[in-house]
């Protein structure tokens, strides 16, 4: 669906995107992660022909971008860095105007129906005629999504679509995206909400300082670590019994090196040790992302402060271990 080769974008001296080979297959739900300023938005803008690459090639739906943008874009829905709308018009009028501006899939007769359906999908079906400037942040965000869905796109590119939505709204959008994907829509999603990506996406890409440092299936990323998390009131005795296989102890919470949680549980119970909680440890997306990415590119610490800030994060120590395992 999307393929880039050696894609690079410079803004003057800043290299926003560096040598990216992105591959998104048809039917994927692809999540693009990365710290602020890592180049996600720039990458998306290049895919859509808004920003011209310094070097490298882009193919979307088998056609070169930006040369054949006109053929590709009618089949793509997108939201880039927040919604856009004319404040003095109603949401419905905005969508109708946008629909009328471009080449038609269908005509004026079907416009009202299409606009109504798109609003319905994002939960604005019953919205009144108040102007968009009187909308709440969440309503604007939904309106932006409706605009992206207006022409039943085969590819949906969303840059932080749930920005400003409440938890229920985020959930609704996630369900909506999943339903669209089941109907065959490919989804590329940029987000800082790791939970959202973890729940929704089947593939993840991680960007750091302009580079695409990871591109994997979600199931690989969230692989088992070969450890078991265990909570027990008899922690001291468990440590004695397992002798050296306990890697970490925090009160009654233990981290045990063991391939099979069931087997470990059986052994503890056989020795009369009580188990409150037990589960195989999986890497979290957060660990993976933190391990692969440096401090955000748009943090501008003073030279001394940067080191402090980095040393201060406890997560990094764990994260570095994860990085070793992934690569």
């Amino acid at each position: 669906m999307i393929a880039t080769r050696g894609l690079t974008k410079r803004y003057g001296r800043v290299v926003a995107v560096r040598d990216v080979d992105l591959a998104v297959g048809a039917g994927d739900r692809f999540g693009l992660l990365g710290p602020n300023g890592s180049g996600k938005t720039t990458l998306v803008r290049m895919l859509l022909g808004l920003v011209f690459a310094t070097s490298g090639e882009i193919e979307v739906m088998g056609r070169p971008i930006p040369r054949r943008t006109g053929e590709v874009l009618p089949r793509v829905g997108a939201m880039v860095e927040g919604p856009g709308a004319y404040g003095h018009l109603s949401g419905r009028a905005n969508l109708a105007l946008l629909d009328a501006s471009g080449p038609g899939r269908g005509t004026r007769r079907t416009r009202r129906r299409r606009v109504g359906e798109a609003l319905e999908r994002v939960g604005l079906g019953g919205v009144d005629d108040r102007p968009v400037k009187a909308y709440s942040l969440g309503m604007r965000q939904r309106l932006g999504l409706a605009a992206a869905l207006l022409h039943e796109p085969e590819l949906l590119i969303l840059d932080e679509p749930t920005n400003g939505l409440d938890p229920r709204g985020i959930r609704e959008i996630r369900d909506l995206l999943r339903a669209l994907n089941e109907d065959g829509t490919t989804i590329l999603l940029c987000s800082h909400l790791l939970g959202e990506v973890e729940e929704l996406c089947t593939r993840v890409g991680v960007m750091d300082r302009g580079r695409l440092v990871l591109q994997r299936d979600m199931s690989d990323v969230r692989a088992l670590t070969g450890r078991v998390e265990l909570r027990t009131p008899d922690a001291a005795r468990v440590v004695a019994l397992l002798d050296g296989r306990v890697e970490h102890r925090d009160g009654d919470l233990l981290l045990v090196r063991a391939a099979d949680a069931a087997e470990l549980n059986a052994r503890l119970v056989a020795d009369g040790l009580r188990v409150t909680e037990i589960r195989p440890q999986r890497r979290t997306l957060e660990e993976v992302v933190l391990s692969l990415t440096g401090a955000s590119a748009d943090r501008f610490d003073r030279p001394g402060a940067a080191a402090d800030a980095r040393a201060g994060t406890d997560a990094r120590a764990d994260a570095d271990r994860t990085a070793g395992e992934l690569t």
Partner: peptide, 14 residues
């Protein structure tokens, strides 16, 4: 300024 330029170009309007 209203953020509509990119959405017009994505519509697509040449």
């Amino acid at each position: 300024g209203s953020g509509m330029l990119r959405y017009l170009l994505l519509r697509p309007v040449g």
